[in-house]
Design a protein around this nucleic acid. Structure first.
Lengths: 240, 240
DNA sequence: AAGTGGTCTAGACCACTCC
DNA sequence: GAGTGGTCTAGACCACTTG
């Protein structure tokens, strides 16, 4: 814990543990040392350890089980879907849409993309075009941008190895975990190209969802823009 | 703290304090007893008091200030607006829209309303129709439903005493505090009546926002449905 | 200077899990 | 029975606010 900048000990310990988790010192699902041990190792009282671990549990990095131990949380692939998937059919269905990647290329970042991903203008990015379907009917057309520096492994990944969900792939192959996101909704009339993809009439309204997704270090990791027929969908939000 | 059902003390203390806050034992903005005093009054250690208060702060019922004390959180009239106001103009403006109440009446609840507000079908409700304007231009047309049993005072309130924001009025005049909400977005083509209200062409797309708002006891307090021209607005969400 | 919440300690005992 | 996290205690000192 060299970061001795007069922060409270439990915060320094939390940061220390968080960075070790990020560095995969323990595998997901593996137990970290007991509170007793952590207290001894870092030379603090057990109550201080508990406060640090409390925060990491609240942040979703750790899981505690009385009598068993404290474990690095494994990415809950099921839960992570509906956490970020707020689009649903008018009849309330929220099935996992199938995914078809149409384009994957590495190009210099357009200025708008570089700005949102907070990278140098012109730095390399991965651009994808992707279609999401339910019962073979196109529901969403997505454009996705990733900073190449962090996602280089993704650019050469066998397309067949990429399933319907991207975030688990980011995690497994690129060590990049999506922690939060900000979405912006608006309505447009659809242009010819997207009308063809979505199999709707040009000029009909579509919902546009722009999502900027962040890692635990609060740096932007992915920018995507999804379009879907406005008449077909609902979008649900909880405000706390 | 008679609720001695083997719950941890800090939870019983939290519930005890929460119910006293709900009963207005202290006014909003007023300080509750110091941690020392609470520990003495309830016969627990100060660390236990801290844990109870921690949770109430996390729930937004209390606010702590080092060196000053712990205070019952006053409805932050400014913040509460943008907390629930996610609609914004295409240029990103989030000004407080002016409000004009067009209708206020007490009627038996339609079944759909009774269902959402979890009251008996046919029970009395307050129904309002309201227009929200920026620079005298209509932006949103709202229909609002309140259970009469809890909001009786609102039904007879002088219209001039109702400002641009309703939630502070609910709080001041009806002792009802909005704690959270669930919103559902969809897109419709506007009918003739709403087209006239919003001064747009019939048949153009409008965003429809249905909001069910809950109190701290998680019971539904208000249901509203807002419509605004789809071309004019954006809607922003943070996902954590 | 007195009083507040914020941090931290060094223990104790309990509830639970696993062998 | 040994080991884990969960609760709780009874203090100490610090940082900050207020008179």
């Amino acid at each position: 814990m060299q970061t001795d900048s007069r922060l409270p000990r439990y915060q320094r310990l939390r940061d220390e543990l968080a960075s070790q988790i990020a560095d995969h010192r323990w595998r997901p699902g593996e137990a970290i040392p007991t509170e007793q041990e952590l207290a001894r190792i870092y030379g603090v009282a057990i109550g201080t350890v508990r406060k640090a671990v409390d925060q990491l549990v609240a942040d979703g990095l750790l899981e505690r089980f009385q009598g068993r131990g404290t474990f690095v949380r494994r990415a809950s692939f099921d839960a992570s879907l509906f956490r970020f998937f707020r689009f649903q059919s008018r009849r309330g269905e929220r099935r996992i849409p199938a995914s078809r990647i149409l384009v994957r290329e590495v190009i210099p970042a357009p200025t708008a993309v570089a700005e949102r991903l907070q990278i140098e203008p012109g730095a390399q990015v991965i651009r994808m075009s992707r279609l999401r379907l339910i019962d073979d009917t196109p529901m969403l057309a997505e454009e996705i941008w990733l900073p190449y520096a962090r996602f280089a492994a993704f650019a050469v990944l066998d397309m067949a190895a990429i399933g319907d969900l991207l975030y688990p792939v980011y995690e497994t192959h690129c060590d990049q975990v999506i922690a939060s996101a900000s979405e912006m909704l608006s309505v447009e009339t659809v242009d010819a190209a997207y009308a063809r993809l979505l199999r709707i009439e040009p000029g009909t309204p579509v919902i546009v969802i722009e999502r900027l997704a962040y890692g635990y270090d609060r740096r932007p990791l992915e920018w995507r823009r999804s379009r879907g027929s406005a008449s077909e969908f609902q979008y649900q939000v909880e405000i706390h």
